[in-house]
Write a protein that binds this DNA or RNA. Sequence first.
DNA 1: AAAATTCATGCAACTTAAGTGCATTAAACA
DNA 2: TGTTTAATGCACTTAAGTTGCATGAATTTT
Lengths: 138, 138
Amino acid sequence: MDEIEKVLKIHNVRPTATRLLMYKFLRDLNVAVTLNDIESGFDKSDRTTLYRTIKTFEKHGLVHQIDDGTGVAKYALDEPTSTDINSQSLHLHFHCTNCNDTICLTDHKIPHINLPEGFITRDMNLVLKGFCDKCSHV
Amino acid sequence: MDEIEKVLKIHNVRPTATRLLMYKFLRDLNVAVTLNDIESGFDKSDRTTLYRTIKTFEKHGLVHQIDDGTGVAKYALDEPTSTDINSQSLHLHFHCTNCNDTICLTDHKIPHINLPEGFITRDMNLVLKGFCDKCSHV
DNA sequence: AAAATTCATGCAACTTAAGTGCATTAAACA
DNA sequence: TGTTTAATGCACTTAAGTTGCATGAATTTT
């Protein structure tokens, strides 16, 4: 059985053709993608199907959504090694304002923040903006 | 002359009726508001005018836009004491997933992050999510 | 002060992304 | 095989953001 097929099944996602293709598509990139990016990579499939596919992935912990401030949702594969759902979201993201790429800095965790009395933190989102390694020395 | 009128003029914004009202509206809140929130607070004005007004404020450093992950842009007044434009954006924001309020934690700055070689940071956005002080002890 | 210019406002329309309803098709299971 | 459950595709809707253009108000120039 295919490797990707295994991953999907482990996460309780039925391995249909579209899903296998989308997983491969995401895996072969190292940047987060919008639904439009995905759409451009697939000739056949309908936009709605792709939308629902990525949402299915998200619900089952295969991808996480990233809000980089551009106003358009992006998605990136979770680390396959991760067991804890919440640890995924606690890494930070870098958004290059030049090439518009957004990447996961998975080994950069968000530092702890002390909040005022009464505030309970359940999740955090940190996006750094600037020039990525490809765009900084141009 | 009105106090608000002075503030606008200092920032090179002509103090029209709509602008004075919107400034007062924002000042009397302690949460960030969406364009819809603003619209609800004004019977008379047109949506476009309010949109352009808040964008004018933003351009002239009177407000900053906050992206709290809800998908809708929010705005909050800058600290009037600030001289540096960039220091405004470096405080962090808290978004309550219960009441949907988003507030500026102006005296909580974003800690420094060491990035890999080649990355240049120009801006950062940190949003903590969870329960605010009003919603946590319910 | 009148004319000219610049800026603000209001209305309509457009764009883009996100999301839903429903019928059809495919897969899984009893 | 027949039944049920899930996935897909098409059409349509919603919501936020944004622009074009004509009108109205304010500021500047003559």
